[in-house]
Design a binder for these strands. Structure first.
Length: 353
DNA sequence: CAGTCGTGGCT
DNA sequence: TAGCCAAGACT
């Protein structure tokens, strides 16, 4: 049987250097017949979308401890899942995670589909994740193309067309290299290669199993690939966040609408975020503006939030939001920008008490 | 298709 | 430091 060019070299490298990851069945165990748990593969792949391995590991451990299988996750209250996801970002992933778990649990008998086509289209599963689950969990010979694969392919084949225009060419190259044998190991091998050797800057070509066939290396342009279209500048937006503490210690929080930024997450009531926000206090109080703003960088804008704090008597009703008892409040349930606001407000509230 | 959608680590 | 980047999906 004619193996795909390069597959043998990278699989041999993977057998010796595969990263040990909590969701992974390593090459040795896989060869011994151990199958990955599709639930854990799915959960890890969703968490890893645009997110580093280091950031994911702790979340993965907590999620699997709380919810060991897809039925358990399907039964979880969405608010609890959102709270556990807080800090990981891209919160539509968490909402879709619950939706997908409920579809699998209630409409598919608790069993993940094995086919890429059936996986793709489930909430939160797109072209990459569908192919990755099919390959890793079920050893389907799917073409798995993520950012690592794009970088590795652009270099091995010296593809100088900038992304995203180069995507079709890159996919064709990836398809030509994907082997029929051990497709799950192969997919993870290329991702490990991209994460540890064929890194974005200063790749370690000297120890790369694909050094010999690498066209970019031969041309000395490996560090300049893949090329990417120029990015747009990131504007600054301003806003005002209000942290109200009731006499019993309860804090006024507001759940954000499902659509849009930080959708479905808890946060402090506040103004719109724009060039010149209008004050929008959620209740009448003696608001004290803190001297320092909370700064946070999102993907497409930078936010500077003025923070106003107030102590309010019990019985006061808010126009917006709901008071959360102090005992039930966990800052870790908040998205990072809201946790930054709380960290600033906490100092002032401690002093006032 | 191009914009939206988070965050933390690294250089 | 300020920009770049990460196992993308969705509209």
């Amino acid at each position: 049987m004619c193996e795909q060019a390069g597959a043998a070299e990278i699989l041999e490298w993977y057998d010796r250097h595969a990263r040990d990851l909590p969701w992974r069945v390593g090459p040795g165990a896989r060869a011994a017949g151990v199958r990955p748990d599709p639930y854990r593969v799915w959960l890890s792949e969703v968490m890893l979308q645009q997110t580093t391995v280091a950031a994911v590991i702790g979340y993965f451990e907590r999620f699997t401890a709380l919810w060991p299988d897809v039925r358990a996750l399907a039964d979880a209250p969405e608010a609890q899942v959102m709270g556990e996801w807080a800090g990981l970002g891209y919160y539509a992933r968490a909402r879709n995670l619950v939706k997908c778990a409920r579809v699998v649990a209630h409409e598919l008998g608790g069993v993940f589909p094995q086919e890429r086509a059936a996986l793709e289209g489930l909430p939160g599963i797109g072209p990459y994740t569908g192919a990755a689950i099919a390959a890793i969990a079920f050893d389907a010979p799917e073409v798995v193309v993520d950012g690592n694969v794009e970088r590795v392919m652009a270099r091995v084949h010296d593809i100088r067309t900038p992304l995203p225009a180069a995507k079709p060419e890159i996919r064709a190259a990836a398809a030509a290299m994907t082997p029929e044998a051990r497709p799950g190991c192969y997919a993870q091998a290329v991702m490990d290669l991209g994460a540890t050797i064929c890194t974005p800057r200063t790749p370690a070509c000297g120890i790369c199993p694909w050094r010999a066939p690498c066209a970019a290396r031969a041309a000395g342009v490996q560090g300049d690939l893949p090329r990417k279209a120029a990015k747009k500048p990131r504007p600054v937006r301003h806003g005002i966040a209000y942290v109200a503490r009731r006499a019993d210690g309860a804090l006024l929080l507001e759940r954000r609408p499902d659509k849009g930024l930080l959708g479905g997450m808890l946060g402090w009531p506040g103004s719109e975020w724009n060039d010149a926000p209008e004050p929008a206090p959620p209740l009448d109080a003696d608001w004290q503006e803190l001297p320092e703003e909370a700064r946070h960088v999102f993907t497409h804008f930078e936010l500077r939030l003025k923070v106003c704090v107030a102590d309010v008597p019990e019985g006061r009703t808010a126009v917006r939001g709901e008071f959360h008892p102090a005992a039930a409040f966990r800052p870790s349930d908040l998205p990072t920008v809201m946790r930054k606001v709380f960290d600033l407000a906490r100092g002032r509230l401690e002093n006032a008490r």
